[in-house]
Nucleic acid binder design. Sequence first.
DNA 1: ATGACACGACTATCGTGA
Length: 253
Amino acid sequence: MKIATWNVNSLKVRLPHVLDWLAANQPDALCLQELKMEDKAFPLAELQAAGYHAVYNGQKTYNGVAILSRAAPTEVLRDIPGFSDEQKRIIAATVDGVRVICGYFPNGQAVGSEKFAYKLRWLTALTEWLREEMRQHERLVLGGDFNVAPEDRDAHPDWKDEIHVSEPERAAFAALLGLGLVDTFRLFEQPERSYSWWDYRLFAFRRNFGLRIDHLLVSPALTAACRSCAVDKTPRSLERPSDHAPVVLELAL
DNA sequence: ATGACACGACTATCGTGA
């Protein structure tokens, strides 16, 4: 089973890239973030024609998440239960017996800002909900744009800003690991300076000035089944790319 | 020190992203 995550930075603009990538990679499930569209604009027909089911939780201009899958998704859930939030950042569905949770974590803007406080509140709510979700679903994958680079090696040495690498954000990421979730990328040998996002400005991709902030975490019951996890940098070189690259996890399921 | 680039929004600059 192949599960991937990709922040597409507007599904309207990126749909051709997504369709090409699906055809080339044939994932069983793909988590998408930053759709930046309302549900009524979701390109369901095009994705169905490509052989995929889709469930989505969209909003105008900002945020928006979706799960595409070969098999029909069941037990679809939108938003973190009990957490009052206008922003559409979570969708969950069960695919082939695996609970897939797709998240677009808040950016946080600047350490100490109101948006930063929201980011930490959101992370706390997510963690508490996941604790319960993991009780009900032994096989669980949490994929998405976490907007946190968990360790120093996950940020370019010249990344001077505090946001995405601050102690409170990393503590919140560690709390997810504390639930038993495993960062599958680190189960395998990886190239030096592996990142999943590069700024559009200043030739950042060419210079590999990036951050590893897109992750695929699995529950303990799935850890032994992991066969590979890698960043696919290919789409980042296309015309009008997303600033994020897909991350792909292969499971022996 | 600031901005750079991309996207969407009541098309004209601006909020937001990371």
